[in-house]
Amino acid sequence: MAEFLGYENFLVAADGAVRTVRPEHLRVLPGLGEHDGEPGSCDGLTLEGVVVDVAFRGVDRVVTVDADDATGTTVRLTADVRDSALTASPGDRILLRADAAHVVALAG
């Protein structure tokens, strides 16, 4: 059902529940360890990953990232990025963050 509504990112949380977050709610932060004090994301989702692809789509870019979920399974996530200052390229290690309000637990 969730796939019918458009692109979604699915991953398994530490409690075993499946979580989803829409690409437009994932923030891509280049560099690791540089964003610990950033407000508004500590109660949500934070994952490290490797950029697989960056596709330009007019006003934004779709960044495809491989990251490990809480089970250690590599999941492929997409993020819509409108920040023109982002310089992530394939092979770069980055952080993905989403605020808790945008991370939805699916009923199992």
Results as ranks from 00 to 15, higher is better:
Gly40Ala: 05
Val52Ala: 10
Leu86Cys: 14
Cys42Gly: 15
Leu86Ile: 14
Gly72Ser: 05
Asp43Trp: 03
Ala85Lys: 06
Gly37Cys: 09
Arg82Pro: 05
Asp69Asn: 08
Ala85Ser: 13
Gly31Trp: 00
Leu47Glu: 05
Gly72Leu: 03
Ala67Arg: 05
Leu86Gly: 14
Thr46Asp: 10
Pro30Tyr: 06
Ala85Gln: 10
Thr46Asn: 08
Glu34Met: 13
Asp36Pro: 05
Cys42Gln: 14
Val81Ser: 11
Asp43Gly: 15
Gly49Met: 02
Val54Cys: 05
Leu29Thr: 00
Ala70Gln: 02
Leu32Phe: 09
Gly44Trp: 00
His35Ile: 00
Arg82Thr: 14
Glu48Leu: 11
Thr64Asp: 01
Glu34Arg: 14
Pro30Leu: 09
Asp43Phe: 12
Arg57Val: 15
Ser84Tyr: 07
Gly72Met: 02
Asp60Trp: 11
Ala85Cys: 04
Asp43Tyr: 09
Ser41Ala: 10
Asp68His: 01
Pro30Asn: 07
Gly58Lys: 07
Glu48Asp: 11
Thr78Ser: 13
Leu86Thr: 12
Ser41Phe: 12
Asp69Cys: 04
Asp66Gly: 01
Asp53Gly: 05
Val62Tyr: 04
Thr71Cys: 13
Asp53Trp: 10
Cys42Pro: 13
Arg57Gly: 10
Cys42Ile: 13
Gly44Thr: 04
Asp68Gly: 13
Ala70Lys: 04
Arg82Asn: 10
Thr87Ser: 15
Val51Ala: 00
Val81Asp: 12
Phe56Tyr: 11
Val63Arg: 03
Arg57Glu: 12
Asp69Thr: 00
Asp66Thr: 05
Glu34Asn: 06
Thr73Cys: 05
Leu32Arg: 10
Pro30Arg: 08
Ala79Asn: 07
Ala70Phe: 03
Ala55Val: 14
Glu38Gln: 05
Ala85Trp: 06
Val54Pro: 01
Gly40Lys: 03
Thr71Met: 07
Leu47Lys: 00
Val54Met: 02
Ala85Gly: 06
Val51Ser: 00
Leu29Cys: 06
Asp53Phe: 05
